[in-house]
């Protein structure tokens, strides 16, 4: 687990778009919470103001396994805001077991083994004092 806070990396401010408190509270406990549509029984990510399936606001937050498979992968190699000192930076999309796709970094892994279809689990990237952010590691 990466416990080193990275200098210069922006710390996200919760609730700027919709109420994401459960996501950030869960992250403090190193648990991944995603938005869940109670009408359809389906998850969605990123969080939205309504269910993308029905348009209703009958949403809640539920803990997910954090397990999934890499759907697509890249490695950022050029500098940019907030990524100083992090290059080369592996970025993937992961299809979670619960049926949502999430963008994340791969940490604590042999980067040579990152490939589409590889199994991953959530890992926690330490951003600041008590702020953890979901990333993934190869399993």
């Amino acid at each position: 687990m990466s416990e080193t806070a990275k200098a210069g990396r922006p710390v996200p401010k919760p609730n700027t778009y919709v109420d994401t408190t459960p996501f950030w509270e869960g992250a403090k406990r190193k648990e991944l919470f995603l938005q869940y549509c109670k009408d359809t029984g389906r998850f969605q990510h990123y969080p939205r103001p309504v269910s993308i399936y029905t348009g209703s606001r009958n949403l809640e937050w539920r803990k997910v396994s954090g397990r999934g498979k890499i759907y697509a992968n890249t490695v950022i190699r050029i500098p940019g805001p907030g990524i100083d000192g992090r290059l080369p930076l592996p970025v993937v999309t992961v299809d979670l077991e619960e049926g949502a796709r999430i963008l994340g970094n791969i940490i604590d892994s042999n980067v040579e083994q990152i490939k589409i279809g590889a199994a991953v689990e959530v890992a926690w990237d330490h951003l600041a004092d008590d702020i953890y952010y979901p990333a993934f590691r190869l399993v």
Binding site: P12, K13, H45, P81, L103, Y133
Partner: peptide, 11 residues
């Protein structure tokens, strides 16, 4: 700022 920038996906 919550779900994309922390991953380093700026552009």
């Amino acid at each position: 700022s919550e779900f994309q920038d922390p991953v380093g996906v700026q552009g």
